[in-house]
């Protein structure tokens, strides 16, 4: 994490509080425009933290997901005036103005809520997250560690998968068949070795942890989780904004 910004300095829990505030506001509003504004505010926060570029792939993925979400929903809402029909002769695929608004609203709500997650992940070292959760929220250490360790293993597994793919290719295994069924069946010879390797790895890690006193009893921590004046300010601002916006929305 090379870029340091005010976002990086904040306590992880402050960022979680911000995320919760965004979620609350997202549920308060029922119109697409304020939700678009809310989503924009999340992206502005990312921009201010200098991580917009880093999280762009994640945001793009969320947008695609929202698009699929709209496609599935839009034809199911029959109320309101017809805007257009996909196949006019059969009356199939009718899209109404109510449906269009409702789907856009839902998609934007989802986008605003979920976009906070990559912002938090990109600005918080997992270790800080563990410490904050264990110290401030009293989450058992084992659960926090489990979560973070699984995150740490993702790049290792990617590397491993790459190796297995190479090995299978070297033995003339066809991974790029055009037939979708053969392609799906082709996953098995990749997944099986990956699973076995992961189990082996997990075992080694467990042994390595045992030999370094894991589970010896009460533990100390190198880092500590602190709330600064900035954290207090951000949390207060989030509370105030949430309250104000919810009042406006319900008026």
């Amino acid at each position: 994490m090379p870029a340091r910004s005010f976002l990086h300095e904040l306590n992880p829990l402050t960022k979680v509080a911000w995320s919760l505030a965004v979620i609350t506001v997202a549920f308060a509003f029922q119109q697409p425009l304020p939700l678009l504004g809310l989503w924009a505010s999340v992206l502005v926060v990312a921009l201010a933290g200098g991580i917009l570029k880093t999280i762009l792939p994640a945001i793009r993925g969320l947008i695609i997901f929202a698009g699929i979400f709209i496609l599935f929903q839009i034809f199911l809402i029959g109320e309101g005036n017809t805007v257009f029909t996909l196949i006019p002769g059969l009356g199939f695929g009718r899209v109404t103005d109510v449906g269009l608004t409702a789907c856009t609203m839902l998609a934007l709500r989802m986008l605003a809520m979920t976009s906070t997650i990559p912002v938090i992940l990109a600005t918080t070292p997992p270790k800080e997250m563990i410490v904050a959760f264990v110290e401030k929220l009293r989450v058992p250490y084992v659960y926090a560690l489990m979560l973070v360790t699984s995150l740490r293993f993702i790049p290792t597994l990617q590397e491993e998968l790459h190796l297995i793919v190479q090995a299978q290719r070297a033995r003339a295994y066809d991974l790029e068949s055009r037939n979708i069924f053969r392609r799906l069946a082709g996953i098995v010879p990749l997944a099986l070795p990956l699973l076995l390797v992961s189990v082996q790895r997990a075992r080694t890690m467990a042994i390595s942890m045992e030999t370094r006193g894991f589970g010896a009893g009460p533990r100390t921590s190198l880092r500590t989780s602190t709330f600064s004046a900035l954290d207090a300010g951000v949390i207060a601002a989030c509370l105030l904004c949430t309250l104000a916006l919810v009042l406006i929305a319900l008026r």
Binding site: R212, G213, G215, A216, G217, P218, R219, T220, T224
Partner: peptide
């Protein structure tokens, strides 16, 4: 990690 497990002071 190991030092934390053995509750060594910070």
């Amino acid at each position: 990690f190991g030092l934390e497990n053995l509750a060594v002071p910070r």
